[in-house]
Amino acid sequence: MRSRFMTQDAVAAPAPATVEVPADAAAKGTLTMEEALAIVLRKSLASDGLVRGAKESIKALDRKDAELCVLCEGTEEAGIVSLVEALCSEHKIPLVKVQDPKKLGEMAGLCKIDREGNPRKVVGASVVVIRQWGEESVARTTILEQLNN
């Protein structure tokens, strides 16, 4: 039970997982795809524009309510991979593939953060869909440029 006399420090939630990005890389626009994806997913999660999980992601893709889809190639269910690929190609939604489901889950915020800022109890994610980008950033333009090439 919480007391109403608790300080703000005692109630504050831990900060979301951070990805170490060199300051000069962000300024020059030389982010790797993984770094840019982590930044965009974090900003999208903060603006309530991120859909996580296969069932909800497939619903968003079917409704054409998606800006970008991130799919893990290491998903155990082959039906999910083929369905997501088909929906993305049918509705012309950009698709980015990653290898590790744990890394995708960590980037999408499906983990606990300890006091030192390290992710703990990471849950793997098979599909993540961005419905809203959040704010404009160098990471977003990096992803869009790489998708267009």
Results as ranks from 00 to 15, higher is better:
I113T: 06
K64F: 09
R2W: 11
V81S: 12
R131P: 04
A66Q: 13
D9N: 13
S44R: 03
K92W: 09
A46T: 01
A54F: 07
V40Y: 01
A13P: 03
I80A: 11
A26V: 08
L104D: 09
A23P: 11
S44K: 04
D100C: 07
P14Q: 06
P22H: 04
A12K: 15
A13L: 07
L144A: 11
G134L: 03
S89C: 09
I143W: 02
S57T: 09
A23C: 05
D114L: 08
A54I: 11
I143E: 12
P119D: 07
M33C: 02
F5N: 10
C88H: 05
K92R: 13
A26Y: 10
G29L: 06
A108L: 04
G134W: 00
R140W: 06
E135S: 14
S57E: 05
D114A: 03
T141V: 13
K97V: 09
V40W: 01
V128Y: 00
K112I: 15
I143P: 07
V40Q: 10
R120K: 13
L37Q: 03
L95N: 01
L144M: 14
V127Q: 04
L95E: 00
V51N: 07
A139Y: 10
V123P: 05
I39R: 04
E56V: 02
E76Y: 06
R4Q: 14
A25N: 08
V40D: 04
V40F: 00
L31P: 06
E106H: 01
D100A: 04
D62Q: 14
E135C: 06
I58D: 10
A60H: 07
D114M: 14
L147S: 11
A38E: 06
A125N: 05
A36T: 04
